[in-house]
């Protein structure tokens, strides 16, 4: 019955773009869920898709069983500082990072599980006043942190026992970096967004700051999610956490902006707005803002303040599916599984639903 009630509502999307409930897991600890992510479990040349859930005081690893059931394999206890974010490491098995802190990230830790002897460990990667962090391909982690007026943008290489000795510093912009995104199709490039709505580009190999490109103040506090290099242009997916539905045009939650890095000029390519108009209101019942989101390839998912999850096709600029608030509560988390067309939607009570997209 519960599964039926959580059947997603389609917003004029083709059938193949729908969300299908695949399985559900629930932490029985009754702790408030703060994040969910996925990880590859690698053993004996095989890869297994696992789910990682976090509450304030612990992080749990879940492995799939037969019949779409999930088994909690291990729980890392993390101590005094609350967990606020899981930081997945793309293309890396048996490792995941977590951010701990209160309002800001104060500490990053590496959680490690050995496939050989089923041992589970955790180690400290970094401490400080950390403003942004992203797991990169190739077992790397990039972060921006502040010490007084000084900003440090640093890449650390991760070993199975924590951070490696070697690291690299990237040239920081004057303004604080709030988010990072790897550039698909360009291995040595990294982009970030700053507090003054600049998109910055780095050369990861040399650490050079190559360009600062202004986005404009119409949509403050833009956050970069993904970037793609194609035909001499840099396409950046930005989200706007303060988007609100508007009668006239509908403020976009996500925008794809094309930048010419040579001239720093930009042009908006596609807007993806909050569900608006009659059908949106019928489904959601009230005007809603955007809380948080996640982007993978051309698909974006976001949790709205109404407690619904909305999925967009960023190339079409259109909502393709909507999960209304569940019978047991509002959605609080929406994440794409690494490397698969699977959406994880979570509620604060620890219920995580996996949908095939």
């Amino acid at each position: 019955d519960v599964a039926e009630q959580w059947t997603p509502v389609l917003l004029d999307g083709p059938t193949e773009e729908s969300l299908q409930l695949v399985s559900k897991l629930k932490d029985s600890s009754n702790s408030c869920a703060v994040d969910v992510s996925t990880m590859w479990w690698e053993a004996g040349g095989c890869r297994e898709f696992c789910v990682v859930t976090a509450c304030e005081s612990s992080v749990s690893l879940w492995k799939p069983l037969a019949s779409d059931r999930w088994h909690k394999v291990y729980t890392w206890q993390v101590g005094e500082i609350p967990v606020i974010q899981i930081i997945p490491l793309p293309d890396t098995g048996n490792l995941v990072c977590i951010a701990l802190g209160d309002l800001e990230i104060a500490e990053i830790r590496l959680l490690f599980c050995s496939s050989e002897n089923d041992s589970f460990k955790q180690s400290l990667v970094k401490t400080g006043t950390i403003k942004a962090v992203l797991g990169l391909k190739g077992r790397r982690l990039v972060s921006s942190s502040r010490t007084g007026q000084e900003q440090q943008v640093e890449i650390v290489w991760l070993s199975e026992t924590g951070r490696s000795k070697d690291g690299q510093t990237l040239m920081p912009p004057e303004e604080t970096v709030l988010a990072f995104a790897e550039v698909e199709g360009m291995r040595d490039a990294l982009v970030g967004t700053t507090t003054v709505n600049d998109v910055v580009v780095w050369n990861l190999r040399t650490g050079q700051l190559l360009k600062k490109m202004h986005v404009g103040y119409s949509y403050p506090a833009s956050i970069c999610h993904r970037a793609y290099s194609d035909s001499g242009l840099l396409f950046v997916v930005l989200s706007h956490p303060h988007a609100k539905e508007s009668e006239s045009c509908g403020n976009p939650v996500f925008r794809v902006i094309a930048f010419n890095p040579r001239t720093a000029r930009s042009a908006a390519v596609v807007f993806s707005s909050l569900p608006a108009g009659h059908s949106g209101r019928q489904v959601l019942g009230k005007i809603h803002g955007y809380l948080e989101g996640d982007v993978q390839d051309a698909s974006a998912a976001a949790v709205l303040t109404s407690g619904a999850v909305v999925v967009w096709d960023l190339l079409l600029g259109r909502c393709t599916a909507l999960l209304p608030p569940g019978p047991t509560g509002h959605w609080a988390l929406a994440r794409w599984a690494t490397g698969s067309a699977c959406l994880l939607a979570g509620q604060r009570d620890g219920t995580i639903c996996l949908y095939r997209y």
């Binding site: 040399t206 050079q208 190559l210 242009l233 890095p261 042009a267």
Partner: peptide, 23 residues
């Protein structure tokens, strides 16, 4: 997007900017 909006486009922008930017 066209060159009239965005200015001259270079397929090698990353290498060119890396050569021009301070080390």
């Amino acid at each position: 997007c066209s060159e009239s909006d965005l200015g001259p486009i270079s397929l090698n922008w990353f290498e060119e900017l890396s050569a021009e930017a301070p080390p």
